[in-house]
């Protein structure tokens, strides 16, 4: 992506994010949040992170590839286990990176 388009994208996302943050304390300060919006918001983060994780691990240039002969899926699995056991974000990242380096070292 060219730098001018990237800048335009960031300006749009920045303005949008500011409008979200200002919405209920500025424009609609005397209104309650609609129930459907509240219900939708709780699913946005799990859905987004799951889609992005699946895509980052298994989609390569528009094709789905389960490359289990490469280190990354296994490093991700180690991260999932540590995340599940510890619920600690930094420990999860550390475990995933450590497993990645270990497998890169062990695999030819």
């Amino acid at each position: 992506m060219s730098t001018p388009i990237l800048l335009a994208l960031l300006v749009v996302v920045g303005i949008l994010t500011f409008l979200y943050r200002y919405a209920m304390i500025g424009f609609f300060a005397k209104h309650a949040l609609p129930g459907w919006l509240h219900a939708l918001c709780r699913h946005i983060a799990p859905a987004s992170f799951a889609a992005l994780t699946a895509s980052a691990l298994f989609v390569h240039g528009g094709d789905v590839q389960f490359a289990f002969d490469t280190p990354r899926p296994w490093a991700a699995l180690a991260a999932v286990i540590v995340a599940w056991r510890t619920r600690n974000v930094l420990a999860t990242i550390a475990a995933g990176m450590a497993t990645l380096y270990l497998l890169k070292f062990l695999l030819p």
Partner: peptide
């Protein structure tokens, strides 16, 4: 690779509910 690992960590924290 730390970016998808971060998503994994945040996702796990969010999966306590069945709907999530």
């Amino acid at each position: 690779f730390a970016v998808p690992l971060t998503f994994i960590a945040l996702l796990t924290l969010l999966l306590r509910e069945r709907a999530g």
